[in-house]
Amino acid sequence: MREIKAKDITKAVAQLCQQANFELGGDVLLALRDARQNEESPLGKEVLGQLIENARIAQEERLPLCQDCGTAVVFLEVGQEARISGGDLYAAVAEGVRQGYTQGYLRKSMASQPFSARINTGDNTPPVIHTEIVPGDKLRIMLMPKGGGAENMSILAMLKPGAGRQGIIERVVKAVDTAGGNSCPPLIIGLGIGGTAEKAMLEAKRALLRPVGKPNPDPEVARLEKEILVRVNALGIGPLGLGGTITALAVHAEVMPTHIASLPLAVNLQCHSARHKEVVL
């Protein structure tokens, strides 16, 4: 068994929180530059230019890209040959979030008791952690600060199997149309298709971790992604909802088998501040 120390996990998570909030990924920047090239609206072009400029300032000055530094969503891939020593895995991750958000002067946005007290927990804990056991002896940590505005526009639709491909397309387009400018487009649209209700939702979020615009390896799914992207960009919503031809940068769909009675469709929207960083211990 390979040993991974809990305190190294804490340190790594603290760094990821800050990196993710200060440094926009190269793939996102590239997609934004392409979007600025292709956007037909002059105002949209200008807005995209400001997003790129904002990313430069954030990185240079170590200022959060967005004041909403998000819920810390953490995907863990734990090698089955690895052993965590010197502490509890989830406590180590939570401590990393606490340290990262405090040391990085990141905004703490977690409210306790969602429907009454809503007291800020003060350190952005608890994180939302998704764990997978995988072959090997390493620990992969992927951290995604997820802003509230875009997350609020997520949907889960349990479609009838007969709705099929067309039903999926219509429902996704409707979700983006309803979200309008509120989810801070241009978006990355994460889709989970199939599985069960909760599995679809989880895969919709995991799809957002893919490099922007990298198609699903299955050509049939990749065609669906492409068609939805064209339909969404025809809505005219544009950057920040001010009108334009680039409402989404990419559609990432994950597809899995489902029950004979079901066609679950989960839509998780990612704002243009598509922040995530990862490390392997």
């Binding site: 200022l63 959060p64 704002c271």
Partner: peptide, 8 residues
């Protein structure tokens, strides 16, 4: 104001 340009 332009959402997501908090640094700017």
């Amino acid at each position: 104001a332009i959402g997501g340009t908090g640094a700017l």
